[in-house]
Design a protein around this nucleic acid. Structure first.
Lengths: 343, 343
DNA sequence: GAAAATTCGGAAACCGGTTGCCTCGGAGGC
DNA sequence: GCCTCCGAGGCAACCGGTTTCCGAATTTTC
């Protein structure tokens, strides 16, 4: 199939089929009224030449690019991947392509990319990032629809698709209560981090609904295993008894789990542990595997893409769209139903 | 800056500046001979209207799209990210944009994306993926240059940028020998996995150069922590003494490390452990942090993008381009220089 | 058999820039 | 005072499709 030469144009096809350019266009797009025989002849010619319509030319007359831009405000990372996969998935079905732009936490880069995307006349833009904290809109009065995914905009009119992190935290607490835990500790990320604050507040609130309090004041630190391990040291040294730890992330939860086991506490028999993110590498690598809250990032990405498509087609859905989280139960909170034989 | 209306065209700019369209184009691109005053007037008008040249129109006359496609043959994942960042980085500087295509291990999807990219007349294509095993070319006689990154093509004429995994494995072995280890075991991924085979063979070969052999036959399994843990059980049960384990990935290495510690072997005092990939989450989360081989994926991505740009500019560099790996030494192979105070 | 209806396909405008060519007018030279 | 030269900027073709409008050819109808 060597077609190393210049790609065939519709003129080539028309010439080969012995029709005019306009007729060739109609034949290939099912427009106009043509004899079936003519249509087939043109299609055969196109096939033979390996004709692929020049997207730029098509864009010029239709005004549509069938392209959307995806800007990650911070670096492309672990959270962006499932989002991108979801977006790709939903848009690919609609035969749209995705421009990837990595903002790297730099507002100047971000604006540069925004201009590039506008210059390329994308049909829409998806903005995403690692921090769930509402961010200033990427622009105002833009000529194309914008949907925020995972992140949200400070303008409540902007369309965004976000995870119900508070709801996820409540589900985690409910689960711990359901398996009989009453003295629950909380270890999470930095105190200035939006997700840490939201999840922590929701957990406290949910406990309060059952007339309970955290077994110790929440411990804010970093999103790392090392912090999880250190935090366990602090809990053991200063806090009273506790029979569960709700953690702000899977990394923290894994650190907590490892440190508990090292300190001679059994998980989940003595202390149950719940993580957040349901990051396979962490939850499955941990011993035992971690119960965790899944934000369904891929679904978020798909949802954002669907809303963007709708907006492109003139049916915008302004405002925040909150998606529920899902609790995935594993052995860090429940003893396996079928206990492994003692050997 | 509300510009919610239809984006300004060069006709709008020309009208506002009181010149013809052609003149406006020349003024904005520094072509032709115009009075300085005219040039400024046009630029001011463009500024005022927020004019951004329509990329599709520009493409149509120039033939260049300033766009490249990036196809991941398998799902976008951990390995693709640093590659993408590197590619983005190198191309962004040249004001080029990247189309992201997720092949999902499906040849049909892959061909679909290839056609899409060709239809969009990208200036070039970068092919990447998770498996380093040489793969069939994505197409032959394509009208645009293609560079394979991390993966390589079975056609030796195709341009590819790959990591010297064998060299990386040799560096790992050299390091273990340098810190005085002589009885080295090897635990790695599936036997049919290209990287596992290459790394393993190189390790054995490098040991042979010092007149040594592996302390036990290499253990092939999965790329998981759980396998690393199980493998340690096998080593302890069947193998003789060993004072180091070279692992095919960081996940395996972490499993190995955890299991060794659980079995009462100190790392690195009794057994040194080396991983592969230098995946921060694993190497830093592990206790102790893991020495690991870094393939410099971001550099690979940058290199691939640079080669692609060169090829687009008519200076192709066919054939494989092998990039060295780097060994990052951490506490899993060396006792810290400054021992932490006993407390 | 002529008029009307229908089918089929071509010509050309258009999308929004870029660029080669040409014209117009002013300045300078003789 | 006339011719030449050159600078400034307009005109129009072109890139590769899409679409509208219109004419020609064929068929239908009375």
């Amino acid at each position: 199939m060597g077609k190393s030469a210049r790609p065939a144009t519709i003129s080539d096809v028309a010439a080969l089929a012995g029709v005019s350019v306009g007729t060739a266009s109609k034949a290939l797009n099912g427009r106009g009224s043509l004899r079936a025989e003519t249509r087939q002849r043109v299609q055969a010619a196109a096939e033979q030449l390996g004709f692929q319509a020049n997207a730029a030319a098509r864009t010029l007359s239709s005004g549509r690019t069938y392209t959307v831009g995806m800007i990650t405000t911070d670096t492309i990372g672990r959270f962006s991947i499932p989002l991108m996969i979801g977006v790709e998935d939903a848009l690919g079905a609609g035969r749209m392509s995705v421009f990837l732009c990595d903002g790297r936490d730099d507002p100047i880069r971000e604006q540069y990319y925004l201009n590039t995307l506008l210059s390329r006349r994308v049909d829409g833009i998806i903005v995403t990032g690692r921090h769930a904290r509402p961010r200033p809109p990427i622009g105002s009065g833009l000529p194309v629809p914008v949907v925020y995914a995972f992140v949200s905009s400070t303008d409540p009119e902007d369309c965004s698709v976000v995870a119900d992190e508070a709801g996820g935290a409540r589900k985690a607490i409910d689960h711990l209560l359901a398996v009989g835990r009453r003295r629950i500790a909380h270890v999470t990320g930095p105190e200035h981090h939006h997700s840490a604050v939201v999840r922590s507040a929701a957990a406290i609130e949910q406990l309060a609904e059952s007339g309970l309090e955290l077994a110790a004041p929440p411990l804010f630190g970093e999103w790392s295993e090392a912090w999880g391990r250190r935090a366990v040291g602090m809990l053991l040294a200063t806090a009273g008894e506790f029979d569960a730890v709700f953690c702000g992330s899977d990394q923290v939860a894994r650190g907590v789990t490892d440190a508990l086991r090292a300190a001679g506490r059994r998980v989940p028999e003595d202390v149950a542990v719940v993580g957040f993110d349901n990051w396979d590498v962490m939850v499955l690598g941990s011993q035992p595997p971690l119960t965790s809250v899944d934000m369904n990032l891929e679904g978020l990405g798909r949802g954002a893409a669907d809303l963007l498509l709708a907006a492109i087609n003139g049916e915008p859905s302004p405002g925040p769209h909150v998606r529920p989280c899902r609790l995935v139960v594993r052995e860090s909170t429940t003893v396996p139903v079928e206990p492994s034989p003692v050997d």
